[in-house]
Design a binder for these strands. Sequence first.
DNA 1: TTCAAACATGATAGCGCTAACATTGTCAAC
DNA 2: GTTGACAATGTTAGCGCTATCATGTTTGAA
Lengths: 343, 343
Amino acid sequence: MRKPRRSGKVTLSDVAAAADVSAITVSRALRNPSVVSDDALARIEKAVADLGYVPNLAAQALASKRTNVIGALIPSVTNNVFSDVLRGIYDAIHGTRFQLQLGNTRYSAMEEEKLLLTFLSQRPAGLIVSGIDQSRTARTLLETADCPVVQIMETGPDPVDMMVGFSHLDAARAAVEHLIAAGYSRIAFLGARMDPRTQRRLQGYRQALEQAGLHDESLVVTTPQSSSISLGAHLLGDLLARRPDADAVFCNNDDIALGTLFEAQRRRIPIPGALGICGFNDLEMMQTAWPSLTSVRTHRSGMGQDAVAMLISAIEGRRPDNPVVDLGFEVMARESTRRSPMA
Amino acid sequence: MRKPRRSGKVTLSDVAAAADVSAITVSRALRNPSVVSDDALARIEKAVADLGYVPNLAAQALASKRTNVIGALIPSVTNNVFSDVLRGIYDAIHGTRFQLQLGNTRYSAMEEEKLLLTFLSQRPAGLIVSGIDQSRTARTLLETADCPVVQIMETGPDPVDMMVGFSHLDAARAAVEHLIAAGYSRIAFLGARMDPRTQRRLQGYRQALEQAGLHDESLVVTTPQSSSISLGAHLLGDLLARRPDADAVFCNNDDIALGTLFEAQRRRIPIPGALGICGFNDLEMMQTAWPSLTSVRTHRSGMGQDAVAMLISAIEGRRPDNPVVDLGFEVMARESTRRSPMA
DNA sequence: TTCAAACATGATAGCGCTAACATTGTCAAC
DNA sequence: GTTGACAATGTTAGCGCTATCATGTTTGAA
């Protein structure tokens, strides 16, 4: 006879033996205590504690064909935008039976495909993906995944399944319209990374300026480098070298806006008198900065929360009435775009 | 006869049938292609592609008693410090066979225990935990877990297994000594959250000032609230209400330092002439701020990277020579603590 | 020619758990 | 006292994969 492949670990049947019941009773006691007699329950609980039993998730998943795993793919863990989304996800998942499996795509479609495969091999209960620009392959994987899927960050015309986001194009256009209304006319665009959402913000910028007859492509300064505060400072330098007459900057995100502010201060450029600054996302620092910085408020943790809520509803069979949720945005006008110079 | 509980999914034996080999050969082909003939391999690869086979991780884990899961517990996903650590972890894990399972403890020991149990039920290959102040229960769980464990963020005398970090006390003391050397004498401490690492930084602050005969507890302003830039602004307000004569602030972290800077600018307090500012962690913004802000550089992504590297070594049986790695710190002296007022 | 080593593949038996059905005992209703 | 509804528990057979041992087939050196 072969020797059994036992691991030193305590299993369900060890608990069952110790509590003098069958394995299935222990299984029931753990998952649905109300169907087990108080007497048996007490013995089982004691045995679990005595033996230090920890259930084996792999075996659970295999036997029940279900997992509690919600997979989420985000492009960056350091970008404040995504860490806020992530906080929302964790907040909503907290206290439920689900657990999060996080994947970091690093803004790469190939990484996204690879991670998707890894996630699918866990048979997740639901999936969250960022953006609406999945590769053809990734999209097919998502469509054939037999679990609900939510795309977050953006809304678009063709959801894989569900969506929570907002229109980056509209948000950018509203911000630029605010700058125009404030009296600025040579409004630059400072952008980094240039991922699809950034591209759509650039599009919104162009639309607003074209409509006002103010569009001038030489005011657009972009770089594929990833965004940072110091990069914002450099981008302002690049802009002013080329167009010293620019009178406002619409920054692709708040880090760049803050870098712009610092660089302007360093150059003794009065804000907002000589230069208006508008960011994007409205991170917490924007209102505390001096001068406070105009930005477009987006509902980042809300997107995470709603995504999880929609997912859980769908997993439990209650599909939301509307599969596409637009959380909107708000232009937060502050000192940095108030034309009269500060006291 | 009962009907089999088949899930519509493609399994190993489906692939085996399609490739006209046995299941175990497919298994080998997938895990270790070199032991399978080229001929069989080709047929198997074709079958996998044709059928869209995705292996079932739960079954793999159950049968092999191994997983590729590295679990990491961090107290916050929004705090920049931890997102940098997380980036380091992802960087180091990228390209290996391991995948990360992330848990967010929200600075709660109870949450940490719960997550630890969840993680252990996945039989992870390794674990990363933050800090050295685990609860008694958590510590026991970690000690009895049959996988390597790395504690990160801090070093201390009594590792569960391995450690990567630095001394927060020494780092804070060095920062305060720098302030003293720069000529400041009424040096305040601004602290938020007051988690164990913050407490030890406060201790370092006290030691440095006591040694210089400058310690004065009324200069210590703390709050249990979680840290933010606007909180930094408020803390400076609180300090100045109580001690308008303070001439420098050692901020528990960079967010508070930046908030302090903004608030000082708002109040037209010359930095560094009337007030020196020193932060902690040296986030990227510190050198770009105007004036640039002194801070203590810590090796956040390095901690994440080293933790993963040590873990993987240990998993593969090569335990590192030294289980405790001290990554140190550097005081980055900048404009905000340079006593002569800026031009 | 022979035999062992190396190679390629297969049969079998679990891993630890749960779904599905089966059994037993209890109690109220007729 | 029979019936059936219900509650509590048990038996059995997998879930999809891999460890282990077994078998057949080739190769090359003696």
